[in-house]
Amino acid sequence: MSRGWKNRVVVITGASNDTGRATARALARKGVQLVLASRREAPLGDLVRECESLGVRAIPVHLEGDGAESMQALAWEAVRAFGHFDAWINNAGDYLTGSLEETPDDAFRQLLETHFLGTVQGTRAAVAWFRRQGYGTLVNVSSSFAGGTAPFVSAYAASRHAVRGFTASVRQELLDTGIHVCTVMPAAVDAPLWHHTANYTDWRLRPEEPVHAPERVARVILRVLREPRAEVQVGLPLRTWGGMAGLLPRTWWGAARARHSTGERLTPTAGVYGDVSSRRKWPLRRLLVVGGVMATAAFLRGKRARERFSARIVHALGV
């Protein structure tokens, strides 16, 4: 995409979700031609009309699933309409909360299929055409959970770790081919997703702070398309997530559970609590200060405590 935006062609899966919509709008304003794919036809049609009102051509593709045939058909549709495509963004996503025992097998499997296997098949379809062209940029959208964990999101965290690892491996395979393979890892996004996501905890929940506006994530995706980078984070660095969890696991997981739960009971699968806003300020400084005080206290307790603390630092930072 370094040759400029005008008349470039970009494919976006999960185009009707908030990050997909914000990215499509931002690209349309740059003059990029779009192929927009989603399972939801009505919001997809609205997005297509909005993008075309900005003076670009936008092709809607209704996906029946995330399998190989659907993704290959999407690639063919892009080539049929424009003759090629310059970039492909795998952005389809969902959310699920629940303990390991409470989460139904079907729900666990479906999330993995949407996030991981959908990304795999989208990547395979895109790379096949990029190979023929000799160039292209692939962006796989993962999550801050690709470098961290939290209670009650084992399916979600596993799927996001899988996307990150898969993308890194493909990136190594495609070095020096003219094909760029990138991972964008945002924290929680301010979106209606939280109102209808599957929730098997019996508690009304809120997303982990900080919550970002989808437009912020879209700006990062555009920067990656313009100047490809292997991995880009949106929000708290992944090492901070892993470091906090590794150094003070009980404290971190307890705080995560307290932040995630509103204390209000509900019927399972009724959705996550809707008090979500990217305008809220996350007290990061306060959390870091408290963590520093607790870490210092642990360090001063004695030799054995210092040895355990040092081992956790090594483990948390991966050194």
Rank of each mutant, 00 (worst) to 15 (best):
M1T: 13
W5K: 01
K6G: 13
N7P: 06
R8E: 13
V9Y: 02
V10L: 02
V11I: 01
G14D: 09
S16Y: 10
N17F: 11
T23S: 14
A24D: 00
R29D: 03
G31A: 04
G31P: 02
Q33E: 15
A37D: 02
A37K: 09
R39L: 10
R39N: 02
R40D: 02
E41H: 08
A42R: 10
A42M: 13
D46C: 05
L47M: 07
L47G: 03
E50M: 09
C51E: 04
L54W: 03
G55V: 06
G55T: 14
G55H: 13
R57S: 10
V61N: 08
L63M: 15
L63P: 10
A68F: 00
M71D: 12
A73H: 14
A73I: 01
W76C: 06
E77C: 03
E77R: 15
V79Q: 09
R80V: 08
A87Q: 01
A87P: 03
N90D: 13
N90P: 08
N91L: 07
A92C: 15
D94S: 15
Y95I: 09
E101T: 09
R109G: 07
Q110G: 01
Q110P: 00
Q110C: 04
T114R: 06
H115Y: 05
F116V: 10
G118L: 15
T119R: 00
V120S: 05
T123G: 15
A126K: 00
A126Y: 01
V127W: 04
A128V: 05
W129C: 03
W129F: 11
F130I: 03
R132C: 07
G136Y: 01
N140V: 11
S144D: 09
G147P: 13
G148P: 07
A150W: 12
P151V: 14
S159I: 04
R160H: 12
R160I: 03
R164D: 03
T167E: 06
T167D: 06
A168Q: 14
Q172D: 03
D176G: 05
D176V: 05
T177R: 13
H180S: 08
V181M: 04
V181T: 08
C182A: 10
M185L: 11
M185V: 04
V189G: 04
W194L: 08
Y200V: 02
T201G: 02
D202F: 14
E208W: 12
E209V: 07
E209W: 04
P210N: 10
V211H: 03
H212Q: 14
E215A: 15
E215Q: 13
V220Y: 12
V220S: 08
L225G: 02
G242R: 15
G243K: 01
A245K: 05
L248E: 04
A256C: 15
G263I: 05
G263A: 12
R265T: 09
T269E: 08
A270W: 07
G271E: 11
G271C: 13
Y273L: 00
Y273Q: 09
G274M: 14
V276C: 09
S277C: 06
S278R: 09
R279A: 15
K281W: 08
P283C: 15
P283I: 12
M294N: 02
T296Y: 07
T296E: 09
F299K: 12
L300T: 11
F309G: 10
H315Q: 15
A316F: 06
A316C: 11
